[in-house]
Computed example of a mutant assay.
Amino acid sequence: METRHLHYFMAVCEELHFTRAAERLGISQPTLSQQIKVLEGEMGMPLFDRIGKKIALTEAGALLKDYAARMIQNEQNAKAAINELRSDNRGIIRLGVLPSDLDYRLTPMLVKFHADFPNIRLQVFASTLIQQEVLENKLDIGICLPGPRDSMLTQVDLGWEPYHLIVREDHPYAAMSHIELSLLQQIQLVMYPRTYIGRELVENTCLEAGFGLEPIMETGSATSLLQLVKAGIGGTVQPRGLLEGMENSGLCSIPILNTAPCRNLRLIYRADRFISHATHTFISSLRRFLIDNLRLEDGAQNP
C-alpha cells in the first residue's frame, strides 16, 4: 500500500466526489479513479458504493478511513520531527482563543515568546469552534471552555475565573465592595453580542436568576467595550482580571456575589500530533502565563 493511495483515498472520502477530489489533488479524474481501483484491488473489497454520480463509503471504506487518517498523521509527524532538526526552531504555531478578551490579554506573553523564539511565526485566531478546529488540524493549540472529552485530544484544565462588573470610577456603584447579581438589572450595560461565549455565560447566569439583559450597546472588541465604559455609556460584565496591568484606567472592577458568572478554561491540542520543542515551550509558557496573570482559581469548577 503506497502512501499516495491513502492521500487519494482520503481526498475522495472528504469530497465524496471524484471530480472535486481530483481537482483538489491536481490530477485528472480518470487517474484518480484508476488509483482508487488499484487500492480496492489491494484491499480485496470495494471502498466506495457508486450510485450514479454520487458515492458513499462502504463498510470496508469506513474502516480504512480510520486507519488511513492515523497513518497520514504519523507521516506528517515524522516529517515535522525531521524538519525541526534542520530548521533551527522555525515553523508556525496556530493558537485558537475564544472571541473575547483572551487575545487582548495574551499580548505580553506573545511578545516575550517572540523575543525568545524570533524564527517562530505565531498566528492567533478567534474562534467559537476551537475543539473541532484542533481535531481537524486547523489549529495547533486551543484555549476554550470545557467540552466533551475526546481521546484524540490532550486536555489540560487551567482553572476558573469569575466575572466582575466594570464601571467608571465616578459611577454610582463604583464605591461598592461588591454587588448582588440582581442589581445588574438596574445598570445600563455594554456587552459582547449574544453569539460570543462570554456574553452567553453572563446571560445564562442572569436567566437562571430570573431576569435577562438588554444592553444599550454591543461590540465584539474588548478594547471597544472598555472605551465605551470610559465614555460613560454604561458598565460591562467581564472576567475579573481584564483591568489588571492597566494604569490610570479610570475604571474599577466590582465582584459579583452569589452565583456570579464564571468561566472554566481548558488548554487543548491533539494527542497524536508531533509537538516541536518550540511548541512545547510555548504551551508551558502559555499555561504559566494564564495561571499567573489571569489569577485563575485552582480546579475546573467554581466551588
Score class of each variant (00 low, 15 high):
A271D: 08
A174R: 09
D103I: 03
A209C: 04
G241Y: 10
I166L: 12
L243Q: 04
A115Q: 12
M10P: 02
L165E: 09
N83Q: 15
S100K: 09
M10R: 07
T58N: 08
P118D: 07
N204R: 15
F289D: 05
A300K: 11
L95D: 00
N258W: 11
N74P: 07
L225A: 05
K53P: 11
R287C: 11
L158N: 04
L139S: 07
R194I: 02
V237Y: 12
R266E: 15
A56N: 14
M191R: 03
I275E: 01
C13T: 02
L135I: 00
A278G: 06
I256Q: 04
I141C: 12
G44S: 05
G299E: 09
E42Y: 13
D298G: 10
N293Y: 10
L251H: 05
D101W: 10
N258K: 15
I187R: 04
F274Q: 05
Q186M: 11
G61F: 01
Q76K: 15
F211T: 01
Q301M: 13
S253H: 02
E214I: 08
V190W: 02
G299S: 04
A80W: 12
V97I: 09
K79T: 14
L189C: 00
L63D: 03
F274K: 01
I216V: 15
L207G: 04
P108Y: 06
N293L: 03
M71K: 13
G250D: 03
G220H: 09
